[in-house]
Simulated scan of single mutants.
Amino acid sequence: MTTVLIQRYAAFSTTPDGGNPAGVVLDAGDLTDDQMQHIAADIGYAETAFLTRFRADGEPRRGRIRYFSPVAEVPFCGHATIATAVALAARDGLGAFTFETGIGDITLATAESDGYVGASFTSVEPSIDEMPYEVLAELLELLGLSAADLRADYPHRFVYAGNTHPLLVLREPERFDSFTFDPDELRARMNRRNWPATVIVARVISPTEFEARNLFPVGSISEDPATGAAAAAFGGYLRALHLIHPPADVVIHQGRHVGRPSRIAVHVPEAGGIVVSGTAVEIQAPLS
């Protein structure tokens, strides 16, 4: 296999042991699909980002990016996008970057604040859709929950901002903390339903502050510590159902249940894509 430099970043965190780890390969132009899939599986993170083309079309800060989980390519990954932008800022300097993704162009801004480098991206146009009863019943059974555990004022929906996510919002913090699931069974159902990304289970802390558990069983992973695409989709959901008054700033906490706490900042404008922001810090590669 072609020798490539693999970097590792924790996104949506200011410490390497928080947030969501992502693999980043900034020079992946010579890699085949099978090689990228092999690297992603070997790293074992939820996703690894591969910059397959850079300085595209004569633009020095534009490139093509692809994302692979340990088992398959995914259309978009928010935390790996943030990580790649921060890695590029370290190499090429702060400023804006544009990534050509499987869901369209994503432009990011990078900046330094309080000694940490962060990035923000604007999602594609978000949308929501009704969740059929049989899908809801299936999810509740898998998670050991009932309809009585759900908040009626935050109705269950499919939400989208690059990837489609089923979303449930629970009433009680105790149920949010205590529900469990069989990762293999959930993965089988997700594959059957063709859900490429996470299942979102959330709770309300305040009208503009939430905590989320993003279920994503793949390999040794059961829950995603921080999910930028899901955060964008959640922001679109809040706007579409008039649960906030845009423009509004929302904070989503995630990762506590897997020991990697994260903080995702979400700006919800009156119209258009949702802005997701966070820091990323490099993780020292394991010794070989």
Rank of each mutant, 00 (worst) to 15 (best):
D105C: 05
F50S: 01
D153G: 10
D105P: 10
I103R: 07
Y154F: 15
A147P: 05
F76L: 15
S123D: 10
G102P: 01
G95C: 02
I65P: 01
R66D: 03
A49R: 01
A46M: 03
R62P: 05
F68R: 04
R53N: 13
F50N: 02
G115N: 04
I128T: 15
H38L: 15
G118I: 03
A85Y: 13
A80T: 07
D105L: 14
L145S: 10
L143F: 14
H156Y: 10
A56N: 09
S123M: 11
L145H: 11
L136W: 06
I128A: 09
T98Y: 00
T122S: 08
P75C: 04
G58V: 12
Q35Y: 09
Y67H: 00
H38E: 15
A152K: 13
Y45F: 15
L143R: 07
E130N: 11
G104R: 08
P126F: 10
D149N: 14
Y116P: 03
E138I: 07
R62G: 01
G44L: 10
D149Y: 04
T98M: 09
T48F: 04
G115T: 05
E59M: 13
P155M: 06
E134I: 11
E47M: 03
A148K: 11
P70R: 01
D129A: 15
A56F: 11
L94F: 13
D57C: 04
P70K: 08
L139C: 04
A89I: 13
V135T: 12
T101S: 07
T122F: 02
C77M: 06
A147V: 14
A148V: 13
D57T: 07
I103D: 05
A87N: 01
S120R: 15
L150F: 11
G102V: 02
I103C: 13
A96D: 15
S113A: 15
A87F: 02
T122N: 07
D129E: 14
F50L: 01
D42E: 15
I82C: 13
L94Q: 12
R151N: 10
D92T: 06
Y116M: 10
E59S: 11
R151W: 12
S120G: 15
F76K: 04
Y154V: 09
D149Q: 11
F99T: 09
L140M: 12
M36Y: 00
C77V: 02
V74P: 00
